[in-house]
Nucleic acid binder design. Structure first.
Lengths: 166, 166
DNA sequence: TTTCCTTCGGCACACCGATACGCATGGCTG
DNA sequence: CAGCCATGCGTATCGGTGTGCCGAAGGAAA
């Protein structure tokens, strides 16, 4: 699905304010309310807009610490990886998990209240992950910036080009 | 601000669906619409709900790669740190930046379309960051999971305890 | 215990925005 | 040139939002 300039403007705005009223969004991007709504629906159905969420203030709910954990597995076999990933998916304390190229196999991000809370998470969640051979933990002192919005260059074609490519 | 069980249920829900209609949210958490709206407003004003956003599908907008960059600075002086952080804040390509304890000083996350796109970001954004002495780049092959929702244990007091603590 | 006071939820109503039409326009194709 | 498809606009209706008011529950003090 090709994105024209108006789509990008819609996405840019929704990435910053997911709850903006459709009427207001329409005005910002320069469309009528109905036309705007139709585009937003199309973006949702195409899966480009994955979902809408509320972001909480991490410190205000007592999760001040971000902790990164690099994990190496005992083997790279499919079963080992799958078992590990399924366990990760089941844990609500693991905020993020990436399969990595390079030194470690996985990189995890954990949000903990304090060192004691991290010990709980370590004991009840991390230590139970299957197939782990080595863990390296790094503490974040402070989050400098945290973005959920991807840049969508205003440049580029105004209209869908070669929309034929389905 | 103490959170009772209903607040936690509201937050849990809004973290998953930031656009749920207040009337529906009220039904889910077992309140009338007006009472529910008042609580949501209070959570917003307290800053516990930081903001609402639309999350895009990273692969569908052509940003398949997550890249982590560990950065060490030439010095730890206040000016060096500030200058670096200000430059980071200005870059829209840097999705995340943490001040770290341990080996490296900072950890950055970048979302790029492909290796060529990363080269552009490296050249136009990373290479221009001031005060950098060493950079170590790790590529993520695949994101196993990405959460924005913090766990909010249902357990705990139903009612605010010792609300005196202002 | 009684009374006051504060807090919080429910109810009802007025209004605003969302949504679903039908119609108009413009570009592309045969 | 005719027809089709995509896309935008305006309108009408319906449902949700948000406010004002009341009443219930709980705590404190006399």
């Amino acid at each position: 699905m090709p994105l024209d300039r108006i789509d990008r403007r819609i996405l840019e705005r929704l990435q910053r304010d997911g709850r903006i009223a459709n009427a207001d969004l329409a005005e910002v991007v320069g469309l009528s309310a109905s036309a705007c709504l139709r585009r937003v629906r199309a973006l949702e159905e195409a899966g480009i807009i994955d979902r809408y969420v509320a972001l909480l203030d991490q410190s205000k709910i007592g999760r001040r610490m971000d902790i990164f954990v690099e994990i190496s597995l005992k083997s790279q076999s499919n079963e080992t990886l799958s078992a590990f990933e399924e366990a990760v998916a089941r844990s609500t304390e693991i905020m993020e998990c990436h399969l990595m190229a390079g030194d470690a196999d996985y990189l995890l991000r954990i949000a903990a209240a304090d060192p004691v809370d991290f010990e709980r998470i370590h004991r009840d969640h991390l230590a139970r992950l299957p197939g782990v051979s080595r863990m390296r933990t790094s503490f974040a002192i402070r989050a400098v910036s945290k973005n959920t919005a991807f840049p969508l260059p205003e440049a580029g074609p105004d209209l869908p080009q070669q929309a034929k490519a389905k």
